[in-house]
């Protein structure tokens, strides 16, 4: 474990908690893409199946349980408890265009053609594009609540910090996983225009609004 990965995990945890609290406190999921949240729930489920088979550390296990629990709680709040506030019209990204190619790629390019390894690879590839429905929804509505932008910033920052963690591990542990690195770079690149808007607008106290 290194400071970059720890900060990354905490940033990821913060994002998940911010979103859950935002929906719970405001009793509304306006502006939130339910599809992205479903994709994240799938990412965690397919990645953390080893919860049952291998124990790495208390930290590792507890974070996985928290991530999975919060992901499903968020999906439940969006599609069940506060479904009246779910903006389905603007959450119209065709996720099948993500899941099918990612599934095919996971079968073709992986470290080991085994069930758990292919699921892990699928979850890595899926995570890199899972935010697209959310970014697409913001481009359709033309704006995002400030709390949602903080959620997205923490979410984007987490994988950016993981890239630094991978550089660190390459030099100090001679460890690298090309699949995770390539997917992580793609994932972080997808946030770039959001990062620009966040820094130039939200951090200056303005509302994030896109030229619709």
């Amino acid at each position: 474990m290194n400071i970059f990965r720890l900060t990354g995990d905490l940033s990821h945890l913060a994002a998940i908690i911010i979103l859950l609290l935002k929906i719970w406190k405001t009793r509304s999921c306006a502006g939130i893409s339910g599809k992205s949240q479903i994709l994240f729930a799938i990412v965690f489920t397919t990645r953390y199946l080893d919860l049952l088979s291998s124990f790495i550390s208390l930290y590792n296990t507890s974070m996985k349980v928290i991530y999975i629990g919060c992901a499903y709680a968020t999906v439940y709040l969006i599609y069940m408890k506060f479904r009246a506030t779910y903006d389905g019209n603007h959450d119209s990204f065709r996720v099948e265009f993500l899941v099918v190619p990612v599934g095919g790629l996971a079968v073709l390019i992986n470290h080991d053609f085994s069930f758990l390894e292919i699921l892990w690879t699928f979850s890595i590839y899926l995570e890199s594009v899972a935010i697209l429905p959310q970014l697409f929804m913001i481009s359709k509505t033309g704006e995002a609540e400030t709390i949602t932008t903080h959620y997205l910033f923490c979410l984007g920052l987490y994988r950016a910090l993981y890239i630094v963690n991978w550089i660190w591990r390459y030099y100090f542990e001679a460890f690298f996983d090309l699949i995770a690195i390539v997917a992580g770079v793609v994932q972080t690149i997808l946030y770039c225009d959001f990062f620009y808007l966040y820094v130039t607008k939200v951090l200056k106290g303005k509302k994030l609004s896109l030229p619709a």
Binding site: S54, M63, N110, N165, A180
Partner: peptide, 10 residues
């Protein structure tokens, strides 16, 4: 393919 290292990252 690389030997299956223990996946210790989240």
């Amino acid at each position: 393919d690389s030997d299956i290292k223990q996946k210790d990252e989240l």
